[in-house]
């Protein structure tokens, strides 16, 4: 087992939102952090972060990143599969292009990263894979059909990796964030007929009295990355301010 300071971590989708918070949290703990995303290196990213421009849906790019990590560090202890996109459509409205784009990143990208990076983790005695799942994989968010389904895929893959590779020292868990204030959540509110009322209603359903922040998810990721979590595997850990603990039928809100 290693202290956090000796760990090398890769965070996909690390430019903004939850991914960026994970990158910063890991860096605060002294980890060596690599981050990737489809865009160029964010201008305000800490100089210590090793940034790579990678689309996780592109196998060649993922494998090139693997080769680069192997060459430079020959080690990977933590993989955070955070890259994800959201398309607000029903099945009837979803096109083949929507499917390829969303499943390419949210499903195939997670598969590619796990398959490409796991051998490097196993070669060094194992590691922790942290996938970003969703509460929407268990109970559907309306008009988010492909997104909901892609997150259910992530949950299934998480359990499979935990079961198949636990004996090789791999732990694999998913974090299911509730409503975290990121660009994705704002986009969902904008769809409402009255975005202000929608936000007020949503807040009342968070029994802790606030929406989540990317850092709340990053804190959980840090715990799962640490040796404190060495018995935690194959689980979906929800961090949602109490949202899914309660029934949606809340007479106080009607």
């Amino acid at each position: 087992m290693k202290n956090n300071e000796n760990k090398v971590a890769l965070v996909t989708g690390g430019a903004k939102g939850i991914g960026r918070a994970v990158v910063e949290r890991f860096r605060e703990e002294g980890m060596t952090v690599l981050a990737c995303g489809r865009s160029a290196r964010p201008a305000d990213l800490d100089k210590a972060i090793d940034w790579h421009c990678v689309d996780v849906a592109n196998l060649e790019a993922v494998e090139a990143l693997r080769d680069a990590i192997k060459k430079k560090y020959d080690q990977l202890d933590v993989l955070v599969n955070n890259a994800g996109i959201q398309i607000e459509k029903t099945v009837l409205d979803s096109t083949d292009e929507d499917w390829d784009l969303l499943m390419g990143v949210n499903a195939k990208g997670v598969f590619y990263c796990c398959r490409s990076f796991m051998p490097l983790m196993i070669a060094n005695g194992g590691g922790s894979i942290i996938n970003i799942g969703s509460i929407s994989a268990r109970a559907a968010d309306p008009e988010m059909a492909l997104y909901n389904a892609s997150k259910a895929f992530v949950h299934g893959l998480t359990r499979s990796i935990a079961v198949d590779h636990g004996k090789q020292g791999i732990r694999c868990n998913a974090i299911c964030p509730g409503w975290i204030l990121t660009g994705l959540a704002d986009a969902a509110f904008e769809l409402a007929s009255d975005p202000v009322a929608a936000k007020k209603d949503a807040l009342a359903r968070h029994y802790i009295g606030r929406f989540g922040q990317p850092r709340d998810v990053a804190n959980m990721a840090l715990w799962l990355a640490s040796d404190d979590a060495s018995y935690a595997t194959g689980q979906m850990f929800t961090v949602d301010g109490g949202l899914t603990a309660a029934s949606p039928v809340n007479p106080g809100l009607f």
Binding site: T158, R159, A162, V163, G166, R171, Y207, I208, R210, G212, Q213, D216, N219, M220, L222, W223, D228, A229, Y231, A232, T233, G234, Q235, F237, T238, V239, D240, G241, G242, L243, T244, A245, A246
Partner: peptide, 27 residues
Amino acid sequence: LVAWLSGSEAGYATGQLWVLDGGLSAQ
């Protein structure tokens, strides 16, 4: 896990059942 849940790092975690079983129930 108790230490994590009891500290400020878990400030948004509530109402959840945290299974810690070495992957047993995933299989």
